[in-house]
Simulated assay, not measured.
Amino acid sequence: MNASLRVSDPGTDWRVDDPQGLALRLRLRAVKMVAPHGFGYLGQALSAAEQVAALFAHARPGLDRLVCSPGHYVIAPFAAAVEVGLLDEETASSYGQNGALLEAIGTERSPIVDYTCGSLGQGLSAAIGFVLSDRLRESGARTLAMVSDGELEEGQVWEAVLFAAHHGLSHLTVLVDANDSQVDGPVSSITTIEPIADKWSAFGWHVQDIDGHDVDAVLAALKDATAETERPSVIVCRTSTVHGLDCLPPDADGHFIKLPPELAAAAVAELTSKVESHRA
C-alpha cells in the first residue's frame, strides 16, 4: 500500500458496483475502527455513509479530487477506501492510535482524500484552489467536497461560496452533511443557518436538497451536478448521526459516540446481519 495514496493520483483504481452495499459495509467498518477505543467519531460515518459511498461510485479514479473539509469526518473515506481495496486491513486496524497513518482527525498527511483540515471551515477554500488549478491546466477533473452544516457558521465558508459562484466554477460539487449536530449540541440551537438551500441559491449556486440517506438520490444529484456547466453545485444532504444503527441508546451523542464493548459487539452483530441480508 502506498501511504501517500490519494484518489486523484494517476493510476489509482477502484470500482463500486453496489453503492448501497458499500454504505452498509462502510458503517460496519467504521464501528470496527472505533470499537478498540470505546468512543470516537462514529456518528460522522453513520451520517455520511451514503454520501461517501455515492462519491466513490461517482468519482473517476485517478482524476477527480475528494476534499473532506471537517477532519473528523475522514473516518468515512478511510472506511470506504478499505472496502474498495485502497487501504489494507492492517492499516485500518491502527486507526486513531498514536503515530498511526489513519488519524481520528485528518491532517495534511492523511491518505485517500486530496485535502482535509483540522480547523473547520477551510476545506471549501482548498477545493476552490484545486478547481482553479485544474481549469488552468485544462485537466477536466472535478472536485467533490464534503462540508458539514456546523461549518456553515464559519465566515470563510461564505467567502468561498461567493468566490466560487463569481468565477463560475462548474467543476466543483459540494455535499453539505446537514445532520444538525455539532460538539455543543444541535446546530440549530447554536446558530440559525436555515434555510440552507435558499442561502446557497441566493449566492448563485446550483442547489439540490435531498435525503442524504437515499444513496440513489445522492447519485442522481451528483449526476445532475456534473451536467451543470455554468455554476458550482451544492447538494444539501439531510441526515442523522445515528442513522442505520438501531442498537444505539436513545440518548446517544451522535457527534462523539461512546461505544463500550457490549455496545460495540451489538453494533457489529447488527451491521453484519444487515450486510449479509443485503447480499442475499
Rank of each mutant, 00 (worst) to 15 (best):
D184K: 13
S170Y: 11
L162D: 07
Q182F: 08
H167P: 04
G185M: 12
V174K: 00
A178C: 04
G168W: 07
L152D: 01
I190M: 15
L172G: 11
H166P: 06
V157L: 05
N179A: 09
S181F: 03
H166K: 15
Q182D: 12
H166S: 14
V161L: 04
I190K: 14
F163Y: 13
H171C: 10
E159F: 03
H167T: 03
Q156S: 11
I190P: 08
H171A: 15
H166D: 13
G168T: 12
E153F: 05
L162Q: 08
A160T: 03
A160Y: 00
A165G: 10
E159R: 02
T192S: 14
S188H: 12
V183Y: 14
E154N: 07
V174N: 02
L169A: 08
Q156C: 06
L169E: 04
T173L: 08
L175M: 10
V161R: 01
S170W: 04
G168L: 09
L175V: 09
V187C: 11
D177T: 06
P186A: 14
G155P: 08
V161D: 02
A178F: 00
T192F: 11
T191C: 14
L169W: 00
D177S: 15
L172S: 12
E154W: 03
L162F: 05
S189N: 13
I190A: 15
N179L: 06
I193G: 11
A160N: 05
Q156V: 08
A164G: 11
T173C: 13
E153M: 13
V174G: 04
L152Q: 01
L172K: 09
D184T: 11
Q182H: 15
E151P: 06
D184S: 13
W158A: 04
L169Y: 01
P186Y: 07
D180F: 02
A160S: 13
W158M: 05
V157C: 03
H167S: 04
F163G: 03
H167D: 05
T191R: 14
V174S: 06
N179D: 13
V161Q: 03
G168F: 08
D177I: 02
L172P: 10
L175E: 01
D177R: 00
D184H: 13
V187N: 03
I193M: 11
P186M: 11
V176T: 01
E153I: 12
H166V: 12
H171K: 14
